[in-house]
Amino acid sequence: MKFARALATAAGLLLLWQATVTLADLPPYILPTPLAVLGAWIGRADTIASHALVTAVEMILGFGLGAALGIASALAVASFRPMRRWLMPLLVVSQAIPVFAIAPLLVLWFGYGIASKVAMATLIIFFPVAANFLDGLRRTEPGWLDLAHTMTVGRRGAAFRILWHIRVPAALPALASGLRVAAAVAPIGAIVGEWVGSSAGLGFLMLHANARLQIDLMFAALLTLALFALLLYFVVDRSLTALIAWQRETLPSDTATVSLPAPGGVR
């Protein structure tokens, strides 16, 4: 049912696309027909695949590095109070400077290869992961912490165990939100990097095709990119949902009723 709906939406969009081209009589170098794009996709499959592989590697490496860095800094800030003063400004500053603005710098420093794109994707992904996870770590149910406190009074290493056994699992849903956002923005980092300076990747292919008025190829590359972005998002989303299966179970609100026995009416 869900699949059929998606299929119907896609068919509708394609029809609209075709209708626009036909009715407005657009030349192929402005907007090619869906069929022409499909033709380019099949005809240039080798080219697209080789460039797509580069972009995919950039996205996945950027996602992995950015998520790892984000998780590590959120944990550091949550476990060592003084760290907050050092890391929080850094976190905010990392977002105050638009990644687009430093893209040329990153290319200058890390070269035209894959490293500068991974760096860019990492920078973009780092923030939503760190911010969301930290938020989750700081909002642990106070009752759980009270309970943990009475259970561990005077024990060494208790703070770390409370972090590991209570605060981190409790923050997993928040981390999952961050990772979902990160998966959605991962392609931005890779593509911007490729636009600024590269010799491979879907972003490079699009610029290249655009300059030579191979608009059908450009659209084919764009579609491939969209497909990758969707795939990354769904893989991340599904894995997270499986990982924190308990979260859905807890959502239906507690149905326990609060009722006082009538005075003297208990038998």
Binding site: E141, G143, M151, T152, R155, G157, I166, P169, L172, T250
Partner: peptide
């Protein structure tokens, strides 16, 4: 020397009943 029990059960939703009972031992290592 004090054990504390709240009006809310304060069970951790990601742990099974028996893992929740073991929480204190786990937190103390």
């Amino acid at each position: 020397r004090v054990a504390f029990m709240d009006q809310r059960d304060l069970l951790l939703p990601w742990l099974t009943a028996q893992a929740n009972v073991a929480l204190g031992a786990r937190l103390r290592g």
